[in-house]
Design a protein around this nucleic acid. Sequence first.
RNA 1: GCUCCCUUCGUCUAGCGGUUAGGACGCGGCCCUCUCAAGGCUGAAACACGAGUUCAAUUCUCGUAGGGAGCGCCA
Length: 469
Amino acid sequence: MTVKTRFAPSPTGFLHIGGVRTALFSWLYARHHGGQFVLRIEDTDRERSTQEAVDVILEGLAWVGLDHDEGPYFQSRRFDRYAEVADQLLSAGKAYHCYCTRDDLEARRVAQISRGENPRYDGRCRHRTNPVSGVQPVLRFRTPDSGVTVVEDLVRGRVEFQNAELDDLILVRSDGTPTFHFGVVVDDGDMGITHVIRGDDHLNNTPRQMHMIQALGLPVPAYGHLPMILGSDGAKLSKRHGAVNILEYRAQGFLPDAILNYLVRLGWSHGDQEVFSRAEMIQLFDIGSVNASASRFDGEKLRWLNQQYLKVAEPETLADDFLRHLQRAGLDPAHGPAPAAVIEAYRERATTLRELADSAAYLYTDSPAIDEAAVRKHLTPAIGGSLALLTTRLSELAAWTRGGIHNEMAAVAADRGIGFGKLGQPVRVAVTGGTVSPPIDVTLELLGREKVLRRLTQALSLTGSGAVA
RNA sequence: GCUCCCUUCGUCUAGCGGUUAGGACGCGGCCCUCUCAAGGCUGAAACACGAGUUCAAUUCUCGUAGGGAGCGCCA
């Protein structure tokens, strides 16, 4: 049997990190077993579904690289099929029309709750033989009222449900549209889904769906219910801390591989290993060793992982994204060094591409941000002579390389009788405007001779030493 | 309220009857060092509680407490 899994989001909002994790595990399961991964858009609720949400889901999945083999299928285009299956169930006596109104249902629900009962449909239309005129009925599924349904969950193990606890759920609304439960069952059957891997908010729905599948005479798929991801405060994911559009992570400068790596370690592990390439994930992933408990989202660890990927990536592959972040910051990439060299120099000093671009901003502008306190501290009269000498020597340096620059700086420091560091930091402040940058020779090499000489000359005047190059 | 699920350092986790309870992020210290990082070494930090079962429970069972989910003509 070939494994076939699916990811079935409803397009009523953006795709967030929790959805991506669900998609990832489902995708990994399929890929690990050499199976197929199906994408299905569950848009039976026409009121709340939007094309914009569909686009965002598709773009998000494409960005993180969770590719599907089939689909996207849209439930909204399969209404005829659902109607056909509904008729089948109705004529087989496995479903029936219910004429109870919403108001009646609601009133009974309130009464049940006040009596301390599980609010559920009382089945009063189960044996009705005549239609109620003027009322458009819904179609309800006739749930077995005794017995036990066992879910052998891939993640939770054996979970039992008393059928008597379950009521007759609606398959088709009075307006003729199918409900979520019905669409899922018909689609999973039609699409040949063998393994349903989804969030554990569906665990309680599983016995009902199994009943429908059995009534349809279809094979019951295997189920795996994944624990949910909580916000960093332990509360349900909300916009404050993670339930943001997955594409926002791209805007923040995260890499897809880092996100998937972070997500796969939420609820799953392989010994002490922390970093997994996609190939390793696929090879090692085992749903049987997925945790049953919910986990919290930790942005710090995501940042750490992101840097791990930043550090080993081919700089060229990061160049385009880096350029986008520069432009976002209002900088002109043409006015500075080639991206790869900057990435190379900065990736151990940044956790995201966005941070990296922000740190490198001084390379791409003629008016870098100036740290006034650093200027006062380092650009003192005493350093003026050294800066003047360095400026002269750098202007005469034959080849503008870090090695050559380093030699000139060492020579100036020796000549002036000061340590390398005593010269390095004032130079750093002079050319970057701040106190932090890659090794000073690398920094100067990146900036280029023209900008370096100009900034050193400007800095010289700030020292108040009267020295000139 | 009813049903179902969950519970090891602050966080992610390893553990699958006998361990000095391991690793990672974060935090502290030391080393390296022109700054910041990165890196190396190192420190503090956990089995929710109570009963069983057992020679022996973090590990098995049952409770308790605390979290979570479901109970819609939402998905």
